[in-house]
Every structure is written in structure tokens, then in C-alpha cells.
Design a protein around this nucleic acid. Structure first.
Length: 585
RNA sequence: GCCCGCAUAGCUCAGUGGUAGAGCGCGUUCUUGGUAAGAACGAGGUCAGCAGUUCAACUCUGCUUGUGGGCUCCA
């Protein structure tokens, strides 16, 4: 790329600079799109975190094949190095200028009357815009159009569907290349691809969308997580229960799900004249347990946990691998407690959350506190106590957080925690929600110290979120190379020739007795090929067994990182594997 | 649910209006090997499903299903 002075302001931060470049690139794109497709109506084209987009209303859809010619035209405009000119207009002028642009008129309508309206113009293309921009169209060092998509005007599904073109632009070709590489890296980590390579799970047409078949290796991973989850919950004083997958309509009437969640529930099943529904949530079942007995203030808190499988009719277009499914298992729990116990309980939930997340290798978090929406149920004083307790707990832990004012559910305030993965993406897994609705609907109570009935506070929480999403996130976080304790197959024993199989078996058996997940590759293949397939499956350790090992009663170890750790006696091997396995826990 | 794209062997993908190909994987045989692919041969496909156009459809058109990129939604 040709070196030239870009004339950017010296004190511009890289973020501001990129924003200008991207915003300007969006204008240039809109310019050429309106020329290639003359009937185009313009919507909006803002810069984003990683690039920019512009929404258009076009008669014939733009496809990815069109991007090339749009890019080519854009380059011509850039070559002309046209100045971006700032202009201000009176309201009547701007309305007149945009009289054939319905979406622009919509935007102008929302600009306060007393604010001057501005445009930026390059060549003969003038677009309603507050700026800022680079000085001229020649100052776009590197850009690329990435994809086309549909998008509703104003993000509202009652509004017209527009065509959105996504692109990105950077201050240098190197920065753009780096960004493209990053996208490619992220794709390599895609859990849907890794799932095939590592044989973790599948979904199939005959089964139905959003329904997962866990293969043996995926199931080993999942049960390792589940076993750990159960053990830690018991340590943290939870009682674990099991509940059915279906319940009578009465239950869902009382819970209110048939009123406000029915469209997300699988349709009714009829059995002997009784109506049943597949459960979309576990809460009513846990409440059934709570209500089964008279509770005293002395019994509280009661913490009920379950790896509960729920089924939800997620809209077809939102399904995505393990991240968004129709059948999932939540790591669900409900805490019933007294007002004076709330803070301690929230703290305990967060202790457990961070303990789990840290063990799984997540170190960075983003905390979001969502407060009371306009439409809500429950006593205002309860909202206050709960929200303050959430806030106080976050602050006392020195966590930074954002407040989503009015973003809570109608039944209570909540904390959501996003975890950051190995390549900096955020995933929402943990949610801690107060519920003032269900205790009321089910008439939950406990007998207080004063001998009177009181309504308990109910906290709903899922820490990993669901097994499906969490395993999806974990897979992408580690790029499929799980740490030893999580790896579906921890050790692959590789006999060099058939005569080494017997010795290999005794080694595998001994490791199995120490709870290692071990497999032996007895195929009639060369050692090199066996190593390669173990590598491809990202199995942490390979044990190579040949004449040398048999005669010296040792085992050679190779790590998937490529290191040959040499031969050692079984006890040393065991020691090494055990300490590696326990590294985190 | 909405917009656009895609659907060919178990997997990854070529391909043509005249009833199909590669690599990997799988099977058989030979090879028993020292830290990321030994060799030969072979099996395997109603070209997602259903209609339509055509003398002829895997190829063109429509619908359905699934899937991908987004939007919306996410109690």
C-alpha cells in the first residue's frame, strides 16, 4: 500500500480515528449503492465496534456476489479523493432535501426542533449526518465488505425489512489483515466445527431442530462438568433434587406460564383427559418441593438445585449450535430465604459462581445489574431491598458493573454475568434473579419467629446457564484443546506393534483404576499415524509403548503440544498425570 | 417469525440440461513401524424431500425441510 500522509489529527485516539474512517466508508458505500441500484432508499449507516454497516431499502435483494462490484466502485470514489463537506440546513430545507427518503424523514422527525441539522457531502452524494468524517474519500487506508443481512428498520419487526451490508475499515492494511485473521481464528474455534472434529455431539434432521445428540466423547465432557457441579453445590450447602419433564396444566396455570410464556412452550399433550405440558422452566417443580412441607424460619435458607432439562420453542431463526437450542439442561437452583439472609445468600451465589468459572478457566467478567421495569409485580419495598442487596454485594467485592435501568424482569431485579473467553468475546451464562411473582402465585410461606406467616424471598439462579451453551463456550474458549481434567479422552495409549498391545492394556487398566479416561489405539497403523489422529482429536497425553518400554518397564509420554517427555516408570507417569489433572481444582 | 445464501459419499468439498468425482474416513491385503499421514485394491450416493418445466433435471422453477449470515426475540 502506498504511503501517504493521511492528515489525521495527531491527538485522535485510535478509536476516534477508526470511527471516522468507518463512518466515512459507510457513506462511500451508500453513495455507490444508490448509483448501482437507483431505486434504493437510504436508512442509516453507523460505525460499530468492529466495522460499520449501512441499511438500504432496495427492490431486488443485494447478495454477497454483489459485494465485489460495490467494493470496486467504492475504490473509484476513494481514488477521486473527494472532500467530505459539512453543511448545516434549516429544518424545512432538510425535509425538502429528503422528501423521497422516507427513512431519513423518520430520523429527522426525532431530531429536536432547535438543533441544527447537518449533512456531509462528498461528490454529489449528500447524507444526513452528524459526523465526524475524515477529510476526503482518499483517506480510507483499508476496507472490506464482509456480508449482507436482513435487518428491520429501527430493529422493529413490524417495520419494513431492509438489506444491511456489513463491512469494516482500518487505519492501515496491516490492521485490517489482523482483523481478518482474527475472524478466521474465531471461525476455527467454532464449536460446531470442533464438535465434528472431536466427535462431541450432533443434531439431525429427523430429530428436529435445536435438539442435541450427545456423542460418547461429548457426554464424557458433559458428565465431568456435571459431576464437578454437583460436588461443588453440595459443598456450598445445596440440596439436589430430580423433577419430571412434564407437568399438568394446573401447575402452569398457577405459575402463570400459560398466560405469559405459552408461545415458548411446546404444545399441549393430552393424557386421559388431562392436559400436560413439557417444562420450559424448573421453578414450579422446585416450588412443589418447598410447598410439600410447612417451613419454619429455622429451615431457611433452603437451596434446591437440579440439572433440569427444559424445552422451549425458540423461534427457528435464532437456533445456533449449542448456543441456542430448544432442549437444554439448566444448572438451575432456587433459594428460599428470609429478608435478613438475602445478602449472605447473594454473596454465597457469587462465591460459587466465581469459584466455578475460575476452575473452568475464565478470569474476566462483566457484571450487569438490571433494575425494576415500569411494568412489574411485587411490593416496592421488596424491590428496593433486593436491588440494594445485589448492588451492595457487587460493590463489596470490588466488581465493576453496569446498571441496566428498568432492564429487570417484571418479577424481580437480577444480576447477569458475562464471561470473557480466550479471544475476548463475552458470553452471558450466569444469571441471578429475584422472583416476587411465584412465591405470591403459589402462596409460599414460612412461620416466622413471631409465629406468623411470612412470604420467603425467592432467588432463581443458573451459574453455567445451560450445559449446552456452557459447553459451547468452553469449546470455543479452549479451541477444543480442553485442560486435562475436562478432556473427554485424557490419555491415548499407542502400542507401536501388535506385540505391545498386552503391555499397553495393563498400563491402560492401571490408569483406568485411577479414574483416568484412557483409550488404546490398536489399529493396524504405524505409530506416526496413531499419534497424528490423537493429535487431531486434541487428546492431552499419548503414551508410546514399544520394545524399549516393555524391556525397561517404562512408558514414553508425549504431550499434544508436541513435547516428547521421555520414558518413565508407571509411578512417575501416574504422579505427573495426577498433578496435572488437579492443577486447577 | 422475517431477509438473503446454502444443501452432492460418514466428513471436507469439486462438478455438468444427456442418470456423478476428489481427499480424508471405512473394508480387505501387504507392511510391525520410534514421536503429526506406509502402500495397493475395494465398498459406499434416489445429488435433502415433494411438485412443475423439458424428449431428458443432480443441474432450471416453485413449495417443504434442514442449515449458515443477520434482524427480532431471549421468563
Amino acid at each position: 500500500m502506498e504511503e501517504k500522509s493521511l492528515g489525521f489529527l495527531e491527538n485522535d485516539s485510535i478509536e476516534n480515528l477508526r470511527e471516522k474512517i468507518r463512518h466515512s466508508t459507510a457513506h462511500i458505500m451508500a453513495d455507490v449503492v444508490t448509483k448501482i441500484y437507483p431505486k434504493t432508499k437510504l436508512a442509516i449507516g453507523p460505525p460499530t465496534k468492529d466495522g460499520f454497516y449501512y441499511d438500504f431499502y432496495v427492490e431486488d435483494p443485494i447478495t454477497e456476489d454483489d459485494l465485489e462490484k460495490i467494493e470496486a466502485s467504492m475504490k473509484k470514489v476513494m481514488k477521486q479523493d473527494l472532500k467530505f463537506e459539512y453543511k448545516e440546513y434549516s429544518r424545512s430545507e432538510i425535509l425538502d432535501m429528503n422528501k423521497n427518503e422516507p427513512f431519513k424523514l423518520d430520523v429527522i422527525k426525532d431530531i429536536p426542533e432547535n438543533v441544527p441539522v447537518s449533512t456531509y457531502k462528498h461528490g454529489d452524494f449528500e447524507d444526513l449526518c452528524g459526523g465526524p468524517h475524515v477529510e476526503s474519500t482518499g483517506m480510507i487506508p483499508a476496507f472490506k465488505l464482509l456480508s449482507v443481512a436482513g435487518a428491520y428498520w429501527r430493529g422493529n419487526e413490524d417495520q419494513p425489512m431492509l438489506q444491511r451490508i456489513y463491512g469494516t475499515a482500518f487505519e492501515s492494511q496491516e490492521a485490517l489483515d489482523e482483523h481478518i485473521t482474527k475472524i478466521e481464528e474465531a471461525n476455527k474455534r467454532d464449536h460446531r466445527n470442533l464438535a465434528k472434529q472431536l466427535d462431541l455431539f450432533s443434531y439431525q434432521d429427523e430429530l428436529g431442530p435445536g435438539l442435541i445428540v450427545w456423542h460418547p466423547r461429548g457426554s464424557k465432557l458433559r458428565s465431568t462438568i456435571e459431576d464437578f457441579w454437583k460436588k461443588e453445590h453440595i459443598k456450598y450447602d445445596y440440596d439436589l433434587i430430580y423433577t419430571p419433564h412434564i407437568g399438568k396444566s394446573t401447575l402452569w396455570e398457577i405459575s402463570g406460564h400459560l398466560d405469559f410464556y405459552k408461545e415458548n412452550m411446546y404444545p399441549v399433550m393430552d393424557m386421559d383427559g388431562q392436559e400436560y405440558y413439557l417444562k420450559p422452566m424448573n421453578c414450579p417443580f422446585h416450588i412443589m418441593y418447598y410447598r410439600n412441607d410447612i417451613r419454619s424460619y429455622r429451615d431457611l435458607p433452603i437451596r434446591i438445585g437440579e440439572l433440569g432439562s427444559v424445552y422451549r420453542n425458540e423461534r427457528a431463526g435464532v437456533l445456533h449450535g449449542l448456543m441456542r437450542v430448544r432442549g437444554m439442561t439448566q444448572d438451575d437452583a432456587h433459594i428460599f430465604c428470609r429478608p435478613d439472609q438475602i445478602e449472605n445468600e447473594i454473596n454465597k451465589v457469587l462465591d460459587l459462581t466465581f469459584h466455578l468459572m475460575k476452575t473452568f478457566g475464565f478470569e474476566k467478567y462483566e457484571v450487569m445489574l438490571s433494575t425494576k421495569p415500569d411494568k412489574s409485580v411485587g411490593d416496592i419495598s421488596r424491590w428496593h431491598i433486593a436491588t440494594e442487596s445485589l448492588k451492595k454485594t457487587i460493590v463489596s467485592r470490588g466488581l465493576s458493573y453496569e446498571i441496566d435501568e428498568g432492564g429487570g424482569a417484571f418479577y424481580g431485579p437480577k444480576i447477569d454475568i458475562n464471561i470473557e473467553d480466550a479471544i475476548g468475546r463475552l458470553w452471558q451464562c450466569t444469571t441471578v434473579q429475584f422472583d416476587f411473582n411465584l412465591p405470591e402465585r403459589f402462596g409460599l410461606n414460612y412461620i416466622g419467629e413471631d409465629g406468623k406467616m411470612h412470604q420467603p424471598y425467592m432467588i432463581h439462579r443458573a451459574l453455567l446457564g445451560s450445559m449446552e451453551r456452557f459447553i459451547g463456550v468452553l469449546t470455543e474458549h479452549y479451541g477444543g484443546a480442553f485442560p486435562l481434567w475436562l478432556s473427554p479422552v485424557q490419555v491415548m495409549v499407542i502400542p507401536i506393534a501388535d506385540r505391545h498391545i498386552e503391555y499397553s492394556n495393563t498400563i491402560a487398566r492401571k490408569l483406568f483404576d485411577f479414574d483416568f479416561r484412557v483409550e488404546i489405539d490398536t489399529r493396524k497403523e504405524r505409530m506416526n499415524a496413531k499419534i497424528r489422529s490423537a493429535q487431531m482429536s486434541k487428546i492431552p497425553f499419548m503414551l508410546i509403548i514399544g520394545d524399549k518400554e516393555e524391556s525397561t518397564n517404562t512408558i514414553s509420554i508425549r504431550h499434544r503440544g508436541g513435547e516428547n517427555l521421555g520414558a518413565m516408570p508407571f509411578d512417575d507417569l501416574l504422579n505427573k498425570l495426577q498433578s496435572d489433572r488437579d492443577l486447577l481444582k
